[in-house]
Amino acid sequence: MTPTKLTLRDVVKTFELPTIDRAESAEKAVLKMVDENCGALLVPRKSKNDAYGIVTKKDILAKVVAQGKDVSKVKVEDIMSRPLVILTNLSLDIRWVAKSMANSGVSTIAVFDRGDFYGYATESCIIEGVYNAMRRARLEEGVDFVSC
C-alpha cells in the first residue's frame, strides 16, 4: 500500500489543453506541441452529439512517422483518439487513477466534477503529487530532504 493517502483531487491540474482543429495536419499538431511544450492536444467536437478527441505525440509517432507517411498530409482526425478517458470521482485514490491510465493505455485523463469540466490528470501530475507528498512527509519528520 502507498503510505501517503493521495486522491485525484490532490493531483488533478486545472489547466486547459491547447486545442487543434480536426482538419489540421499532423505537422501543425507537432509544431503546437513543441511550442506549447506539451504532449497532447484537445480536438474540439463539432456538435453536442459529437465526442471530444485527443491527439498525443504517441499517436503521431506510431500512426504517421513509423508508417512512413507525410506529416504535412495526414489529418488530425485520422489519428486522434476519442472519446476521452474520463474520471468523475475526485476522491478516488491515485492508485486507481494510475490503474485507469494503465488499463486504457493513455497518459491524460479528463476530470469532471459533477458534470462540469474540472481539469486533467496526467502521469506527470501523479509523479509530482507523489514526490511532493514524500517531501512533505520528510519535512514534517524534521529531516532535511536529501536525494539518493
Partner: peptide
C-alpha cells in the same frame, strides 16, 4: 514516468 505510474502506483505497491 509511465513505468512508475503503471507498474508501481497502479498496482498499489
Amino acid at each position: 514516468r509511465w513505468d512508475i505510474v503503471e507498474k508501481a502506483i497502479a498496482e498499489g505497491e
